[in-house]
């Protein structure tokens, strides 16, 4: 929502977005670069976000977009510094979103769930967003516990595929 407003030129929304993103980016880089404060990379990522903001698709989740921008800056930084570092590519968008602003994460998840079959999206919504246990989801949906577990497992795999995780790093 904030990014869409920023694309339309809303300076207040844009400032809010950048301020909300900053701690998440800092945490993102510090987790991956031990011994670095990550502040330079945060600033480079914010600059890239600014110059390439037109490449964000307003109909798509925001999290994969900003994560890809951050990942690119990290890879550039590592390449320039000649360091070897593990770049995590499997950010768990459903579970621990780190310090990702809650409204951004929630909107992303809602947009992604719309791309799943209705039943599967409902089960994942109940289990992962409303934090009901498998048994509670089973009672609410009338499906067996094992069917709920299978639906969640397959649904999460589909969501991972939709946001492009486990695809390897950037090329050259």
């Amino acid at each position: 929502m904030l990014m869409r407003a920023a694309q339309a030129g809303d300076q207040r929304a844009y400032r809010d977005l950048l301020q909300q993103l900053r701690p998440w980016l800092l945490s993102y880089f510090r987790r991956r670069l031990k011994g670095s404060d990550g502040e330079d990379l945060v600033q480079m990522t914010l600059l890239s976000l600014h110059t390439k903001r037109d490449t964000y698709d307003p109909a798509a989740p925001f999290m994969p977009w900003i994560a890809a921008v951050a990942r690119n800056k990290l890879i550039d930084h590592v390449r320039r510094a000649g360091r070897r570092v593990e770049v995590e590519l499997d950010e768990d968008l459903i579970g621990d979103g780190g310090d990702l602003p809650a409204d951004l994460a929630r909107r992303d998840v809602e947009m992604l769930l719309k791309q799943l079959p209705k039943d599967q999206a409902r089960i994942i919504g109940l289990h992962k967003l409303k934090e009901l246990s498998v048994e509670e989801v089973s009672a609410a949906t009338g499906k067996s516990s094992s069917a709920v577990k299978v639906a969640v497992h397959r649904g999460l795999k589909k969501l991972q595929a939709l946001v492009g995780v486990k695809t390897g790093g950037a090329d050259e």
Partner: peptide
Amino acid sequence: MSDAPDKLIDDLAGALRPVRPLQ
């Protein structure tokens, strides 16, 4: 929080212009 990132955010927000999303 240092001053530099805050200034950067202020500068970027101040320089914001509407953009047409890539289609």
